[in-house]
Amino acid sequence: MQRVCFTLQVRTDRMEEYAERHAAVWPEMLRALHDAGWTNYSLFLREDGLLVGYLETPDLAAAQEGMARTDVNARWQAEMAEYFVDLDVPPDQGFWQLSEVFHLEDQLAALAPTSTTTDSPTQTAQDQ
C-alpha cells in the first residue's frame, strides 16, 4: 500500500468556507474516491492555510486516473480551485507530494524477533 502525503495552500480568506465544504462532501464524490482506490484519506488545515492531505492507495497514479475519468471529480475540482493560492491546474493535480522518510510499522516489522531469554533488558531481578 502506498502512503501519500501532500500539501496545498488554501487562501486564508476562504479557509472557513473550505472547511465547511469538506464537512459535507458530495456522496457521489465520496463513492468515486473510494471506488478509485483512495483509502484512509484525511485533510488537515493549519491556521495559516497550509493544507496537508494523507491517503493510502495501491497506486497513486491509478487512483488519480480513476478520479480523472469521473464527471463528479471534474465538477468538484472546478469548485475547489478557487480556494487555493497560485494554482493553475486542478487541485488534485497541483499538490506538492512529500517524501516519506519514516514509518514506525515498517521499521518495527524489519526488526528481528526479540529474544525471550534471561538477557532481556526488560526482565526484572525477580525473573532471573
Rank of each mutant, 00 (worst) to 15 (best):
G66P: 12
A32W: 11
L30Q: 12
M29V: 05
V4R: 01
L51C: 13
G66S: 13
L87C: 12
E20Q: 14
G49Q: 08
Q107H: 14
A81W: 03
D119L: 14
L45C: 09
A24I: 06
V10Q: 08
L111E: 05
T116V: 01
P113D: 06
Q77H: 00
L33F: 11
R21W: 07
W38C: 11
V89P: 02
V4Y: 01
Q64P: 00
E47Q: 15
T57F: 10
L45F: 12
H22Y: 11
Y54K: 04
T116F: 00
F44P: 01
R46A: 15
E47M: 12
Q64G: 00
Q9G: 06
R21S: 08
R31H: 05
L45H: 08
L98R: 09
R14V: 03
E100N: 01
L51K: 08
L108K: 11
R21D: 01
G49H: 14
P27S: 05
V25N: 03
F84C: 08
A61H: 10
L60D: 13
D88W: 02
D86T: 13
A24P: 06
L111G: 00
V89D: 00
E17V: 03
R31E: 12
L60F: 12
P121K: 11
V89S: 01
P113W: 00
D127Q: 15
L51F: 03
Y83T: 08
D48M: 10
A74Q: 07
E16S: 09
E28I: 08
P91Q: 04
Q77R: 04
Y18A: 10
E17M: 04
R46L: 11
H103V: 03
S115K: 00
A63S: 14
E17I: 01
D86E: 15
Q126N: 03
F44T: 15
P90V: 02
A74C: 02
L60K: 07
A32K: 08
Y83C: 04
A81I: 01
D119N: 15
E56G: 04
T12C: 07
